[in-house]
Write a protein that binds this DNA or RNA. Structure first.
Lengths: 338, 338
DNA sequence: TAAATTTACGCAATCGTTGCCGAAACCAGG
DNA sequence: CCTGGTTTCGGCAACGATTGCGTAAATTTA
């Protein structure tokens, strides 16, 4: 088995006590420089690394943070995780990732699991199914630091990082309007998610600005955010079968955008002639697509970084935090209409 | 701060000793059923969870496994990680992910970091730059269990999981030949990677079968596996500027395939009329691409699962393993030529 | 040279858990 | 009532690292 060297090994080898070795390594003033050097040299030579479990036990913290996302294999989240990792790594933390697959039950279990793993804090983006966040509230009340990113909740007072969903949605919708479309539908995720609400507002604001009435039949929710293709298909078909068929769709999510394009391709619907599209997506291959999708891109990497910095600020603060930041990061519209 | 209940808390509350409580929870025979019930009920009521750090310290294992991949934001790896997670989670392990970004230095540092984090074992897919694996060998000799997946090394005797790269490459190349292409180039990653070697062999075997000579100018390596767009661009431009220009390229990697398509689009090269393509890719949106890429898809999820099962087999074996498995999983060719 | 002070290090407790040993408390048989 | 054997539980030590406290030895001071 793999048995890394311990303080005791060094102590025995050098004929010292573990306390002396510990203090030498931590550069305490009451150890002679000769002894320090001896210890340091030897520790280096055998590549001594303190046992993290022993440290965690003693310090009552694990130097690890739990990350809760819906799916790793999603462009937005894998980019956000990269951002999270970049900061965490530099600060000596490691991250434990768990996926909810948009399920409320999985989210509850994962959060519980992470807490029992004694992570020092959580970075959470809620699942599409999650409406009740008492599982998080309870943990937060017990003192577990939590920072929300992307899909946030207002029921817990803490740091939050979100994209400028309102503006992004507004920009995309306005772009469709300016290009000449009038009957603009909206395909979105679960209606209680913060991102859905904010994007819906942006969509409506754009319509209002140009005096286009909001048509409730034009707004389609997918409870699982497009996790299941049938869900998206149903919604798109519904839109296509409306009396007054929409001439464009603003899509509020990455998976939904992809799913929608797949269905339109299957149905052989001409984009943008029959139906124009604009949607949120963090895919980096949109330029290669046959269908030209104007996209709103979220600063995923930066959001991950920001959320991690905020969490570390809580974790390493000596006093309880009372002022919480609510950061909004700008999105960017990429126009790809042919 | 967040302070979960401990054995001592239960012991005090119930007027017992911590040892008794511990044994009651672990259902030892020498505790009376009355006491057991009392303890269990109380533990349940306060949602007692054993402290994982204390357990790790005692048991000398952390119930965590380290994963080394080049990039999370890569279809193949994010799918593989999903597979890894699905098994690890069920068996009570959590995973710590680190990215090499195809850098040898990063790989060394990350492996070191994971070892010092006292993971119980490692799942490794080598970086494109890695030629010397002494950092892994050293660790492995000290007793750290390692399982390779995807990009394996023969210098360490352990379990290995790989896709059937030879057959996949053969199939893709043969498909190009059968479609009528004769001057088939090969764009691949770093030449010392196992996947590059095996795919090159498959490519050459297909050419041989149809008596097409292997043209060394047609084989282009990208040392960083397409991490940098310029690298791929250089290679593709070189191919296009050959006297006897190839009429098709077999591409041995996901990022390379994407990168190649981006360049061809930029150069306005018509696919497949001017140049046909076939390549390895695990993207799930290839059907939406303008360029029809016949693709070899690797069973990423299954490979992640298999590798994790093998690692757990080592971790939970009571005796040292002497027989190692070398599993090869079939790839699948998706034909997309128009 | 004796006393005071500084230097340099060791002892032991701590974090939460479990293994091992010992010790009560109980019962049955003689 | 005594002996021997269970049953049931508590105490101690250990995992590896840190740290307050204590104390020899070395040094300085008077």
């Amino acid at each position: 088995m793999f048995e890394p060297p311990t303080l005791k090994d060094i102590a025995i080898a050098l004929g010292l006590s573990t306390s002396t070795v510990s203090r030498a390594l931590r550069d305490t003033y009451e150890i002679s420089s000769k002894t320090k050097k001896r210890v340091l040299d030897y520790a280096q030579s055998i590549n001594y690394q303190p046992n993290p479990n022993a440290l965690s036990l003693k310090e009552r913290r694990s130097k690890s943070i739990g990350v809760v996302v819906s799916e790793v294999a999603n462009h937005y989240f894998s980019q956000a995780i990269s951002g999270i990792e970049s900061i965490a790594y530099d600060r000596g933390y490691h991250i434990i990732i768990s996926q909810t697959h948009e399920s409320y039950e999985r989210e509850k279990i994962n959060v519980q699991h992470l807490a029992s793993r004694s992570v020092d804090g959580l970075l959470v983006s809620l699942s599409a199914e999650t409406n009740d966040i008492s599982h998080l509230k309870e943990l937060h009340d017990k003192g577990m630091p939590i920072v929300f990113f992307d899909r946030v909740s207002n029921e817990i007072e803490t740091h939050k990082v979100r994209a400028d969903n309102f503006q992004g949605a507004f920009d995309a919708t306005e772009h469709l309007i300016k290009t000449g479309y009038k009957r603009i539908a909206h395909l979105t995720s679960s209606p209680h998610l913060s991102i859905s609400i904010e994007r819906l507002e942006g969509y409506m604001a754009a319509l209002n600005k140009y005096n286009i009435p909001v048509h409730s039949d034009y707004i389609k929710n997918c409870q699982h955010g497009g996790m299941f293709p049938e869900e998206t298909e149903r919604a798109v078909l519904d839109l296509l079968q409306l009396q007054e068929k929409p001439d464009a769709i603003f899509i509020a999510g990455d998976r939904l955008s992809i799913g929608c394009m797949e269905i339109l391709k299957k149905l052989n619907v001409k984009v943008p002639d029959e139906l124009a599209l604009a949607g949120f997506s963090n895919s980096n291959v949109l330029d290669l697509f046959e269908i030209r999708l104007s996209s709103v891109r979220q600063p995923a990497f930066e959001m991950g970084q920001a959320a991690t910095e905020m969490l570390l600020k809580i974790l390493e603060s000596k006093y309880p935090i009372t002022e919480f930041e609510n950061r909004t990061i700008a999105t960017k519209l990429f126009i790809r209409n042919s």
